[in-house]
């Protein structure tokens, strides 16, 4: 057991998987000598050589498309998209090619690939380097979506994602890279589609994912001082989606607040709220609440960025509201 950062957890996982599968390919911008802009692939080039660690030109479509071509022809591949915002450049390859290849071919194409990318605000990276876009991809059948909230989960989920025979969008959060978790020495995998209750509580269910788990846990700690016991569910993956864990909790607490960093309108919270009312309407003592970013691009300056991205206060207020406390 050792305490390691999220970045180290990712790097160790990739290294272990590179050793396990001698054909596993890494492809992306600046992932070679530079080690990736967040350092995830540091040392990989020296250890595995330039054919398996392909540092590419700035060509996002070719990165994603060639990862797909390699995957379809028997080379399991992890592509790195430096910022999820850059998916805009590669959108055809992601939504028309990667996501559809298996279905369109009647199951004949096997696409064992992971697109590793990172998203989120909080660092003043402004509108084209801070977005959260999971909702966009959730709307495209054919992509699995994984969003770990801590180093431990990141390791177990990335292993599973790499070994999956389907395309997986693995979305990291830039504010989590330095966060540490205790990681066991022995290998472990976390299945996709299994939410994790990060805090037990009886009064309200907070459903969230990725960095917002950290914020939600802070809010839950504050709420506890007011005598409100919030249950915090970390979905961990959006596709597959573990609604069972969510519904079980809501049937117990009778109240739900969904928290995500992506824009509120059309965010995955809308889908979860809809499913809760479809499956657990009679259990609800209050309307399901959603906390999400305001519907504007992410502004640069700190007070405006904080005003747009959900904060601890926003979650606390939403919880009080569903409990009819002011």
């Amino acid at each position: 057991m050792s305490e390691i950062t999220f970045v180290d957890a990712l790097r160790i996982t990739i290294k272990e998987e590179m050793e396990r599968d001698p054909s596993l390919l890494l492809i992306g911008e600046d992932i070679g000598r530079y080690g990736g802009i967040f350092g995830v692939t540091k040392g990989m080039l020296d250890e595995f050589g330039p054919q398996r660690v392909r540092s590419t030109p700035i060509s996002e479509s070719a990165i994603i498309g060639s990862a797909l071509g390699a995957a379809m022809t028997g080379i399991r591949t992890v592509a790195e998209l430096m910022y999820i915002d850059f998916s805009g450049v590669a959108m055809d390859q992601i939504i028309n090619q990667v996501a559809k290849m298996t279905y369109m071919s009647g199951g004949a194409a096997k696409v064992p690939m992971v697109i590793r990318t990172q998203e989120g605000g909080g660092r003043g990276n402004a509108a084209q380097h801070s977005q959260c876009l999971e909702g966009l991809f959730l709307h495209i059948p054919g992509l699995k979506i994984v969003m770990p909230s801590n180093a431990y989960d990141a390791k177990g989920l990335l292993k599973t994602a790499i070994r999956d025979d389907n395309p997986v969008l693995f979305i990291e959060h830039k504010l989590l890279y330095a966060a540490k978790s205790a990681i066991p020495d022995e290998e472990y995998l976390i299945p996709l589609g299994q939410a994790d209750v990060k805090r037990k509580g009886k009064d309200v269910t907070i459903v969230t994912i990725s960095y917002m788990v950290t914020v939600a846990l802070q809010a839950a700690a504050r709420l506890a001082q007011e005598g409100i016991e919030a249950e915090v569910i970390d979905l961990r993956t959006l596709v597959p989606l573990d609604m069972e864990t969510v519904l079980k909790s809501v049937r117990n607490t009778n109240r739900a607040v969904i928290v995500h960093e992506e824009c509120r309108t059309g965010g995955f919270g809308a889908e979860i709220a809809a499913q809760i009312q479809e499956e657990a309407f009679d259990f609800l003592d209050a309307p399901v609440a959603r906390v999400g970013a305001k519907d504007v691009p992410i502004p640069y300056t700190e007070p405006l960025e904080r005003a747009v991205i959900p904060q601890e206060d926003d979650i606390v207020k939403a919880v009080r509201k569903v409990l009819y406390r002011s």
Binding site: R52, A62, S66, L68, G69, A70, M72, Q93, Q97
Partner: peptide
């Protein structure tokens, strides 16, 4: 998609080389 297959062919090329 016009032009959509080009990167895929490149990926198959990487696969062959590797």
């Amino acid at each position: 998609i016009v032009g959509g297959g080009l990167p895929i062919a490149v990926g198959a090329g990487i696969s062959i080389q590797n």
